[in-house]
Simulated scan of single mutants.
Amino acid sequence: MPLFSRNGLGGLISQKKPRQGQQNVATPQPNNLDPVSLENGAIKVKLGHNVLCYEDGLWTSEVGGSSGNTLKEITRIKKHNIQLAEENNLLKYKINVLLDMLAVSNADYVLKDNELEYQRKHKQSCDK
């Protein structure tokens, strides 16, 4: 048997038949692709009834058609809600500080009133 034969190196490696491509695979046609658009620096991709928008480093989803709030609107409302909650916490803290100041002021008033009452009683007892 020759060293270099038609079947490979000494018959050790056999020639393989080239594979035939799959026949039933449909290649996408340009009219089947979902449109991708670039509007105002934002990339928009339409997938079925949803529209995905890449803007400011975030992918947001917009519902196609004229229905309800978009994800961008929901995100904006959530940020506003967080801001209002923080403002509410600050106002509660300020109210607690004011109540503490009122309590100290009231305690000072009561203390001075008691001291004044003591002085009046002490003066009356000295006058007798």
Results as ranks from 00 to 15, higher is better:
91 L>M: 11
36 V>Y: 04
82 I>Y: 09
54 Y>P: 00
60 T>S: 13
66 S>Q: 12
107 A>E: 10
75 T>Q: 14
35 P>L: 09
78 K>I: 13
90 L>P: 00
119 Q>N: 11
34 D>F: 10
35 P>G: 07
110 V>Y: 05
84 L>W: 05
48 G>V: 00
80 H>E: 14
81 N>H: 11
104 V>S: 14
99 L>V: 09
42 A>H: 05
41 G>F: 00
67 S>G: 10
110 V>E: 12
33 L>S: 03
118 Y>I: 01
31 N>M: 08
107 A>Q: 14
108 D>Q: 12
32 N>R: 09
119 Q>L: 12
80 H>S: 14
101 M>V: 06
50 N>T: 06
89 N>K: 12
51 V>C: 00
32 N>W: 07
72 K>V: 10
88 N>M: 09
72 K>R: 12
62 E>T: 10
59 W>Q: 01
123 K>I: 10
101 M>E: 15
42 A>Y: 03
66 S>I: 07
59 W>S: 01
66 S>R: 12
67 S>I: 08
53 C>M: 14
95 I>P: 00
102 L>Y: 05
86 E>H: 08
116 L>C: 02
124 Q>N: 15
74 I>E: 09
39 E>M: 06
63 V>W: 00
117 E>D: 13
123 K>C: 02
92 K>S: 08
104 V>D: 12
33 L>I: 14
40 N>L: 06
97 V>Y: 03
43 I>W: 02
55 E>N: 10
110 V>Q: 12
49 H>I: 11
33 L>G: 01
120 R>E: 11
97 V>G: 03
84 L>M: 14
55 E>L: 11
91 L>G: 01
36 V>E: 04
77 I>R: 14
88 N>S: 07
65 G>V: 04
114 N>V: 04
33 L>V: 13
45 V>A: 04
100 D>M: 09
55 E>V: 07
120 R>W: 07
94 K>P: 01
54 Y>G: 00
72 K>C: 02
72 K>H: 04
38 L>Y: 05
100 D>S: 15
82 I>V: 13
98 L>N: 03
93 Y>K: 14
92 K>R: 15
122 H>V: 11
79 K>E: 12
52 L>F: 15
85 A>E: 13
74 I>W: 05
117 E>M: 11
103 A>H: 09
108 D>W: 01
38 L>H: 06
87 E>L: 15
85 A>K: 14
120 R>M: 12
103 A>K: 13
102 L>T: 08
90 L>R: 15
113 D>G: 03
65 G>H: 01
99 L>F: 06
116 L>W: 02
62 E>R: 08
48 G>A: 01
122 H>L: 13
60 T>F: 00
52 L>R: 06
68 G>D: 03
114 N>G: 08
108 D>Y: 07
68 G>S: 08
122 H>I: 08
88 N>Q: 08
106 N>R: 10
58 L>N: 11
116 L>E: 04
121 K>F: 04
51 V>Q: 01
83 Q>P: 00
